[in-house]
Design a protein around this nucleic acid. Structure first.
Length: 430
RNA sequence: GGAAGGGUGGCUGAGUGGCCGAAAGCGCACGCUUGGAAAGCGUGUAUACCGCAAGGUAUCGCGAGUUCGAAUCUCGCCCCUUCCGCCA
């Protein structure tokens, strides 16, 4: 949600901003019209109610027919006005809900994913003296990914990870968690990237994956893209598409002290996506499935530090990818490809040698105060002033990197080497 | 799922129809006191919206209702605690 006062004071700026995100600028005008009507109604009600309250105070002292009949009249008027107000309020809120966050200055202008900018390519692409196979046929041959049986059991876009693939996930998660709990690791990244943020460690968390309507709405995913979300009607609960949704909502209606910020979490959860709009896209394998596990970073920060925190998240993602020795590139997501809550977003795409392309494996967004305002998450600064926090989220590892590992670490014989950095974690499991 | 009890400000907790945005205590802030501190004393201490301000309006889990008037009465829902049932 945008700051209503800001919209009123800067309607042109807001129109310009949301147009860049391919939202209809007319939304702003229709919102402002409803807002104006609503405010007028509120003022009228406040005045009438004040009169009513005074009248009631008299009635408390002595009851006369005059006072009583005046009260009845005022009550009737109020009831009518209040109905109008409720209706206006709903329509006003509905418009406001549809206005996305404004893009940040660092997000490149563009209409869709084809205009995302490559920021850098990192890592040496593996050279094979044979034709590299795709991860799925390798994995199926090794019996470590099974989508056929999953189709039998659950339908399309599901998969079983077995043996080495399952162990790879556990190893990957353990490796990443170990890094994120290590302040020295974070310090080093801060130093290397010349960032001005705290080296505070992340708090590990296993969050709920079913969340209520208010929470899902608060994260900004219900007004647009609700088709993507699984909804359990009987209980009116939503399955999270990412643990971002249960981490960000954890502190709703709370107020931090400034010294508590940044509050950093790393959550592990299963994620559920209906993939309603992606028929025919990545239908093979496990790159786009209805259910997958993901380790996710989430941070509540003061507004001044959110950009740096966002850079830290990206730097962490990159550092872990470099340790894994998987080539990747970093994309700066253009305005037209940003989700509703995000002001800026960086993706990491891992190298898939069988296809000779990079594929998205990570994503980190700065949602500024858009989610915090909906969820009422604030902090008190040193002068005691209360303000909304900023929220940042970022992938650590999902299951997609497992596919990247399989492709990049394949041998001529069709086996898979284990990345060096995972070997100790892997051996403990084997 | 069944039964009982409960949900009030940062916290504890009083409040069964108007004098209640809400007693008291704790905490916190400031001041006095002190060599300094503690204690003591005094003052202040919710949020949102409208307004230049004075001030007004709303909020006692949420929603509806009764009433001129609701924290207080009625109904529905949510959440918490305890007991029973079921259960990893």
């Amino acid at each position: 949600m945008l700051d209503v006062k800001f919209i009123r004071a800067n309607p042109e700026l807001v129109k310009e901003g949301i147009a860049k995100k391919r939202a209809d600028p007319k939304l702003v005008d229709s919102f402002l019209r409803l807002d104006e009507d609503w405010r007028t109604k509120v003022a009228a009600i406040d005045e009438l109610r004040s009169e009513h309250n005074l009248n009631n105070a008299e009635l408390a002292k002595h009851q006369t027919d005059d006072l009583l009949s005046k009260a009845e009249i005022l009550k009737k008027q109020l009831t009518k006005l209040e109905e109008d107000k409720k209706d206006l309020e709903e329509r006003r809120q509905a418009k406001l809900n549809l206005i996305p966050n404004l893009p940040g200055a660092d997000a490149p202008l563009g209409k869709n994913e084809t205009e995302n900018q490559v920021m850098r390519e990192v890592g040496k692409k593996p050279e094979f003296d044979f034709t590299p196979k795709d991860y799925l046929s390798l994995a199926e041959k090794l019996g470590i990914i099974d989508v056929k049986r999953a189709a039998k059991v659950s339908g399309s876009r599901f998969g079983y990870l077995l043996g080495t693939a399952a162990l790879l996930e556990f190893a990957l998660i353990n490796f990443a968690i170990k890094r994120l709990l290590d302040e020295d690791f974070i310090s080093e990244i801060i130093k290397k990237n010349n960032l001005n943020v705290s080296n505070k460690a992340f708090i590990p968390v296993i969050p709920p994956v079913l969340i209520n309507r208010k929470s899902m709405w608060g994260m900004g995913y219900l007004d647009q893209g609700a088709d993507e979300i699984y909804h359990l009607e009987k209980d009116d609960l939503y399955l999270v598409g990412t643990s971002e949704q249960s981490l960000g909502t954890m502190h709703q209606d709370e107020s931090f002290k400034e010294e508590e910020l940044p509050k950093r979490y790393v959550g592990f959860s299963t994620c559920f996506r209906r993939e309603a709009g992606s028929y025919g896209k990545d239908t093979k394998g496990i790159l786009r499935v209805h259910q997958f596990d993901k380790l996710e970073m989430f941070s509540f920060t003061a507004p001044e530090t959110s950009k740096e925190e966002h850079k830290l998240f990206l730097a962490i993602e990159e550092a872990l990818m470099r340790e894994l020795e998987i080539p990747y590139r970093v994309m700066n997501i253009c305005t037209g490809d940003l989700g509703a809550p995000a002001a800026s977003k960086f993706d990491i795409e891992a190298w898939f040698p069988s296809e000779n392309i990079y594929r998205e494996t990570h994503s980190t967004s700065n949602c500024t105060d858009y989610q915090a305002r909906r969820l009422n998450i604030r902090y008190k600064d040193k002068e005691g002033k209360v303000n909304f926090v900023h929220t940042i989220n970022g992938t650590v590892f999902s299951q997609r990197p497992i596919a990247a590992i399989i492709e990049n670490y394949q041998t001529k014989e069709g086996a898979i080497n284990i990345p060096k950095v995972l070997s100790s974690f892997f051996e403990k499991l084997e």
